[in-house]
Design a binder for these strands. Structure first.
Lengths: 230, 230
DNA sequence: CACAAGTTTTGGTCAGATCAAAGGATTTCC
DNA sequence: GGAAATCCTTTGATCTGACCAAAACTTGTG
């Protein structure tokens, strides 16, 4: 039992993945599509909504939907609303943060074992940006994020940068609520330095341990904020 | 700029998370909802579709939507269609498989370091099921999956079992296409034994290495199948 | 050539109607 | 009495046609 909507979805999906509808191009108007597929606007509209939820088109209210090349970022973006549901509860936040810790410990190990020369250069550059921004809390957040980003790029697997985006976007609300101070920035800077040193020394165990200390401490800060906020 | 649909979505979300609409209960009929929210069926329908995409309700064609408690499985399920888009390309499959390898290497290490007595018992039980099913290929697939599942449960973080579901469901089509033979089953069984031994010996490095060999070999089998299929 | 005003297109929403499947309620039959 | 077949109401899926306000496009003007 197929719904008419499914037919339209399949048709549009085909036209997108065949490249007939190119990335960045606007979708035909709803009325044009109803002529093309011989369906009413209801089903066209429903199909477009479905494509939007699959990350194939980007919909803004009152604007023509825009075709997007499916990518890992799109997947994470689509996942956003569902994840936010889970972040309503403290346990949800903790689960997600601990997942992040798990991933980044492994990333630190991976970096120590396999980082190339250019990776290490990128890491050092990010570290210097940290140092330069240590007095400027908002800017430090940006460079902090960039430092971790480098680690997600080292495996050269496009899934990881997308996961990085996901973690940071989902957890940001809980992060900015935190009391960010220059003192904490210094702690984090020192932690980054330790991680960098361990990676430079090609010592996976030390890198993992340093990352673990860093993120467990960060989690402690976040949890404190929770406790205060009640 | 708010759309009427957003209002209905918010209203239903509230009624769900407040428990007024309990898990497993059926949503009111579309006609009832349009009376309640003073909106036309179009917006009600669009709102329900949106909730479905957020994993808050489960929709089957021609059936009344059913309320679901938001959970990590729901998130992964919602992500499914988008991920499947990416799996259309061989690079997509490889990225996802390598992500799995990355995660399970870390899980093996984690297990060796922190598995409790009951975890190890579960692992041994799963391993024995592997042994018993080694001649029965379809059954071996089931027990194979169960063995890996145990590893995802060891960190006691609800995100991981959901990720396990995701990996297996997404990759299953590429797995079943593979030439599964008793010979391959034996290879995998031996690999599982090696992983188990390393975890039992509390040797993270050996556990990670064993897992790595296991999954790289598996990836080799999958890739061969690709090459044959063209 | 840029910018403002006017016109057409188009997404968001509504109202009302049809149809076939789902879900009960009812009756039939062992 | 309980399982199975049958009837009837509800309800999801789809269609038609319409209206409005915001976008997108066109045109006139400085």
């Amino acid at each position: 039992m197929r719904r008419a909507t499914d037919h339209v979805i399949a048709g549009l999906e085909a036209r997108i993945s065949s490249g007939e509808l190119a990335h960045g191009e606007r979708l035909p108007s709803e009325r044009a599509l109803m002529a093309e597929f011989g369906a009413s606007r209801s089903v066209i509209r429903e199909a477009i909504a479905a494509l939007s939820n699959r990350g194939l088109v980007l919909c803004r209210p009152r604007h023509r939907p825009v075709v997007r090349r499916p990518g890992y970022e799109a997947v994470l973006e689509v996942t956003g609303p569902a994840v936010r549901q889970l972040l309503g509860t403290p346990e949800g936040v903790e689960s997600l943060f601990r997942t992040r810790i798990f991933v980044e410990r492994a990333l630190a190990r991976e970096a120590a074992a396999n980082a190339r020369r250019e990776d290490i250069a990128a890491l050092r550059q990010a570290l210097e940006a940290n140092r330069a921004a240590v007095e400027d809390t908002p800017q430090f957040y940006v460079t902090d994020r960039a430092f971790h980003r480098v680690l997600y790029e080292i495996p050269r697997n496009p899934v990881f940068p997308a996961v990085h985006e996901g973690f940071f976007n989902w957890l940001r609300p809980h992060w900015v609520k935190m009391n960010q101070t220059v003192a904490i920035n210094r702690v984090n800077l020192a932690a980054h330095e330790a991680i960098y040193e361990a990676i430079l020394a090609r010592d996976p165990d030390a890198a993992e341990a340093a990352m673990n200390r860093h993120l467990e401490a960060a989690w402690g800060f976040v949890r404190e904020t929770f406790a205060e906020a009640g």
